[in-house]
């Protein structure tokens, strides 16, 4: 019998939270009844959401206390406005006071909400600072990407500043989105309608192979839950040595793949025998491939 799967991609932010946290442990901060809605959207003739598109609160995973946020990708593409950003920054800042075993961020966002861009950009700076303060205090931050909007713009910087990133193949991670790159560089450089190209460039498998995300899971809420549970309390050092090692890795990567024209060229140079198949294989087979490649490198 095939066990039932509950798609993380298809689930709402609240359903993702319910599936990831231990049953009955969630306590929401600043919930919908507080009606802390965007002060900017009504001026533009746009509807608001009671939670401004993000759910924040505390709960438990395997009995361990966590702070957790879930962006609702269905509302304005999960984009960060003033209230949404303040809720996220406030949640991460709270970690310094209560020292949870982890801060878990379920990201599903195109970045800053352009309708309230200045407030959104300031919020992004505050979130970024809160992330680094929490990491400096040794609190583990876990970023999770598997929603329809992927993780773009400032949200992608937040994700890469966390200790660990967990994603499904459906997740994408990039600063600029496909349409932005096409608009700026031209369709010959990047055809945003070529979905396979988009996934070979920004998709989670590519990001895993080049070392920008840590864990790839299948699109299943339980699979995400298990991966998150395995990294609670798993904080990585954030000091000068770590920073210099990361810079050295990036310099090395640039010289190695500078003239690669496509993700498949990169994968072939990493030692993947059949790069054309990478897009087709399931998460388990893909992870076995990654293990083999990383084992060979050691």
């Amino acid at each position: 019998m095939i066990p039932p799967r509950h798609s993380y991609l298809e689930a709402s932010a609240r359903a993702r939270l319910a599936g990831i946290l231990d049953a009955g442990t969630f306590r929401e901060f600043c919930g919908p009844r507080a009606r802390q809605t965007s002060p900017h959207l009504p001026a533009l003739g746009m509807p608001v959401a009671f939670d401004d598109g993000i759910v924040v609160g505390e709960g438990r995973i395997d009995g361990r206390p966590v702070l957790i946020a879930a962006q609702e990708g269905g509302f304005m593409g999960g984009a960060i406005g003033e209230v949404h950003g303040a809720k996220l920054a406030g949640l991460i800042e709270r970690a310094l006071d209560i020292r949870p075993d982890a801060v878990v961020l379920l990201l599903d966002s195109g970045g800053v909400r352009l309708h309230e861009a200045n407030a959104g950009l300031i919020a992004m700076g505050e979130i970024q600072r809160a992330v680094f303060d929490a990491r400096a205090a040794g609190i583990a931050l876990v970023a999770v990407i598997g929603g329809r909007n992927g993780c773009y713009g400032g949200t992608s910087i937040v994700a890469r500043s966390c200790d660990v990133i967990i994603a499904s193949e459906e997740g994408r991670l990039s600063i600029s989105g496909p349409e932005v790159i096409e608009a700026v560089e031209g369709i010959e450089e990047f055809d945003a309608r070529d979905r396979a190209l988009v996934w070979r460039t920004m998709g989670a498998k590519h990001r895993r192979l080049i070392g920008e995300i840590d864990i790839l899971v299948r699109d299943d809420i339980d699979a995400f839950r298990d991966a998150i549970a395995g990294h609670i309390g798993d904080s990585r050092p954030m000091d000068l040595d770590a920073l210099e090692a990361e810079h050295a890795r990036l310099v090395d990567r640039l010289s190695r793949f500078r003239d690669a024209a496509d993700g498949r060229d990169v994968w072939a140079r990493l030692g993947v025998n059949d790069p054309d198949r990478v897009s087709d294989i399931e998460a388990d087979e893909f992870n076995a491939l990654v293990d083999a490649l990383e084992g060979a490198r050691r």
């Binding site: 709402s12 609240r14 919908p32 009844r33 509807p47 608001v48 959401a49 009671f50 939670d51 609702e72 269905g74 509302f75």
Partner: peptide, 18 residues
Amino acid sequence: GEALVGVVGSGNLEVMIE
């Protein structure tokens, strides 16, 4: 008691009952 369903988007709505 309270319940919140739906997401605000094109052709969609959220309903909160308290």
